[in-house]
Simulated scan of single mutants.
Amino acid sequence: MMDWTDQHCRYFHRLMTRNAMLYTEMVTAPAVIHGPRERLLGYGGDEHPVALQLGGSDPQELAQAVRLARPYGYDEVNLNVGCPSDRVQSGCFGAVLMERPQLVADCVRAMQAETDVPVTVKCRIGVDDQDPATVLPAFLETVAGAGVSHFIIHARKAWLKGLSPKENREVPPLDYPLVVRMKEEFPELTVCINGGVASLDLARDLLGQGLDGVMIGRAAYHDPASVLIGADALWGDGPGPDAFEVAAVMRPYIADHLAAGRRLHQITRHMLGLFHGRPGARAWRRVLSEGASREGAGLDVFNAALAEVENQILQ
Rank of each mutant, 00 (worst) to 15 (best):
A243K: 01
A113H: 07
N168G: 12
H154Y: 10
A146D: 10
F244T: 01
S289K: 04
L136G: 04
P165F: 03
N311L: 08
L174T: 12
D46L: 05
S85Q: 01
G238L: 10
R285I: 03
A259T: 02
L288F: 09
E308C: 06
S199M: 11
R70G: 01
D232I: 04
Y253V: 11
P118W: 07
N311K: 13
G35H: 06
R278S: 06
L40R: 01
R100H: 15
A247E: 03
P173L: 14
G56N: 05
Q7N: 14
K157M: 13
E38D: 15
M2S: 11
S289H: 05
Q209Y: 02
A259F: 06
E308S: 09
Y221C: 00
V27L: 12
M215T: 08
A220R: 01
E184N: 09
H150A: 08
I254S: 02
L264T: 02
D256R: 15
Q209I: 01
A305T: 03
S293H: 14
P36Y: 05
P239D: 10
G236H: 08
V104I: 07
T120I: 06
L15V: 07
V96G: 00
A305G: 11
L140K: 03
R18Q: 15
G94P: 02
Y74S: 05
V246T: 11
L97V: 07
A304K: 12
W159H: 12
L202R: 14
A219N: 08
L97M: 15
A292I: 11
P30L: 12
R109A: 14
Q130E: 15
G240H: 03
V121F: 02
Y72H: 10
L68A: 02
K157H: 04
F151W: 07
V117W: 06
D6K: 03
N168F: 13
G126S: 10
Q102P: 00
L258F: 10
W235G: 01
Q312N: 02
G56Q: 09
A105I: 10
R282Y: 02
E184A: 15
M215I: 04
Y74H: 05
R124Q: 12
A248I: 08
V104R: 03
